[in-house]
């Protein structure tokens, strides 16, 4: 299990619920070291232990937690760096959706050993999209759901999201774009401001 994924989960819990709650989750999950390093690898079972510990401690179903992680990744100031990287994907939400196919390859360009599930976008008409999320990382579909929801806000687009499970751990996200320029959206400049870029 790539440390970046576990580390992301850690900073999500710490930034959202506080370090005390993270300590509870880490203890419940039986972690020897409560801090993950983004650039190291960990035993694969760590992830599932962490998720079920979080379900108990936060008293929330895993699906909701995963979706919160996705929203956190885009909207929390501490992961501004990732939000910027996602915004490089396109000038509007529809172009961003089309860039999702490249997302696993894009992340591999940066962190060569980070393997994310396949993403494949098909459009049924100009406003209806279906994103297939491959298997390999349980919950990634829900994380993407949170990411899409937050990115739509970021671009100022009005969208409806729904999900259904596919075969063998696959998941489908249905995206209906009602309006691409519904609200202002957040500013995005190509040039990075100094000191930008958080963890995540």
């Amino acid at each position: 299990m790539h440390g970046l994924i576990l580390r992301t989960f850690q900073v999500f819990v710490e930034d959202t619920y506080g370090p005390g709650i993270w300590a509870d989750v880490a203890e419940k999950a039986g972690l020897e070291m409560p801090d993950f390093e983004a650039m190291l690898n960990y035993a694969p079972e760590t992830y599932s232990a962490l998720i079920s510990a979080a379900e108990t401690v936060l008293d929330k179903p895993a699906e909701a937690i995963w979706e919160d992680v996705g929203t956190y990744l885009v909207s929390h100031p501490n992961s501004e760096g990732l939000r910027r990287l996602l915004r490089f994907g396109g000038v509007d939400f529809i172009e961003f959706l089309h860039s999702l196919d490249d997302l696993p390859d894009r992340s591999r360009l940066v962190v060569a050993d980070l393997v994310l599930p396949d993403l494949e976008l098909t459009d049924n008409g100009s406003t209806q999209f279906k994103l297939r999320v491959g298997d390999g990382l349980p919950g990634f579909g829900y994380v993407m759901m949170g990411v899409l929801r937050a990115m739509a806000d970021d671009y100022g687009a009005l969208v409806l999201l729904d999900t259904e499970s596919g075969r063998r751990g696959e998941q489908y996200l249905m995206v209906t774009v009602i309006e691409t320029a519904y609200a202002e959206g957040r500013e995005f400049e190509l040039a990075a401001s100094s000191g930008g870029g958080g963890e995540g």
Binding site: M39, A192, G197
Partner: peptide, 23 residues
């Protein structure tokens, strides 16, 4: 734009690496 993306992503990854090395 891909180049800007890469530069930004690489510096984030390098920062993480450097932090790890320091620790």
């Amino acid at each position: 734009v891909e180049m800007l993306y890469l530069v930004e992503a690489k510096s984030a990854a390098m920062d993480a690496s450097r932090n790890l090395n320091t620790r």
